[in-house]
Design a protein around this nucleic acid. Sequence first.
DNA 1: ATACCAACTGGTAGTTACTACCACATTGAG
DNA 2: CTCAATGTGGTAGTAACTACCAGTTGGTAT
Lengths: 200, 200
Amino acid sequence: MGLRETKVARTRAQIVDVAVNLFLEKGYDGTTMEEIAEQAEVGTTTLYRYFPSKDLILLDPFTREDPVADTVRSRPADEPIDIVLGHAVLATFAYLEHDQPRINAIRTLIDESSAPRARLWDVLARNLAELERAIAERTGAPVDSVSVRMTARVTQLTIELAADTWRSSEGTRRLPEIARTIMAALKSDGVPFPAVPPSA
Amino acid sequence: MGLRETKVARTRAQIVDVAVNLFLEKGYDGTTMEEIAEQAEVGTTTLYRYFPSKDLILLDPFTREDPVADTVRSRPADEPIDIVLGHAVLATFAYLEHDQPRINAIRTLIDESSAPRARLWDVLARNLAELERAIAERTGAPVDSVSVRMTARVTQLTIELAADTWRSSEGTRRLPEIARTIMAALKSDGVPFPAVPPSA
DNA sequence: ATACCAACTGGTAGTTACTACCACATTGAG
DNA sequence: CTCAATGTGGTAGTAACTACCAGTTGGTAT
């Protein structure tokens, strides 16, 4: 890794760090891009080169590749699909748990302002598409089939539900444990799907 | 309904109509709020009173109350939950189908620009919350329970899947028929949920 | 070491979404 | 008819974001 790449990576990390601190201190809307640029010691032009929009700074940790699709691809071929997805869910949390409090704070900030909150789903849509591809490859079903699309979404929802529950539990329980509880509940209780009403 | 209310309603409709036509003609990003105000024959201040942000003009049809939660509340108490949800799904489409082509065009515009596309999820989150409440009332489970939250989301996903499929079929099939097909497929194939991997 | 190209930086000027505040017009009620 | 409530619209300002341009720095080939 050359000097140039190193500098770019450092600048990028610096921007995110400075920005999140400012957001925590003065709120997302109360912080201007100029302030971020100034504190990060870059010009505003440079700032916009690293992050084309303000909300993407806050969403940075969520734009990195998540390990769900990779897990689906790397599990043994004879493992049942529900277990594969269970591993994928747990992999996400192993990945997230290392800087728990900061991610937690960032997620709270995201939910508080409308621009990043809205954009989050847009960002997660990319993960969803990749998960769909991975599931389709594994099961042999077409990517746009009902089962593939629904399976991918249900998996993402399970992750979201677990993360939500964890966030509102304020660190009293560990993430993987919460995920296990939720998956167990889904299995034992079952989830009703909308069904075609009898025509009579 | 007094004269004042009539005028307000007319102005509102006029704004949406003018704006969507401009969006279709020049694109969402290529249309300014000033142009919309001018063509709709209102001041920009007034425009912002009706719609606090540009994307909400385009999202207007999706901010109206959707009938899903209402359907859940109004079905007979002894009807099985999956059938109730099936009715709710079909109710949405009966409601949507009356101005099919325009809604279709609007949805395409939404998907093409990042701001409205992102904001759409934020808007639909309100419907989701109300559906959660309706399901919780009916089943007696707490609103924040895993089953209620997952059921509500799965229902919303079924609607989304059907609408997506319909949009890409370009009007060759009717919406309720597509919805029935999807629900039937979900029932017969089943959807795998992530499951806790064996600890061994 | 020197020359050179590519990538990175940052400043200036401009557009546009959106807000705050203002005076003015219109509606509807007593 | 009067008056208060409600709606209208203009002006001035902020801040996100873009286009353009000149200058700097890092890597590379000679």
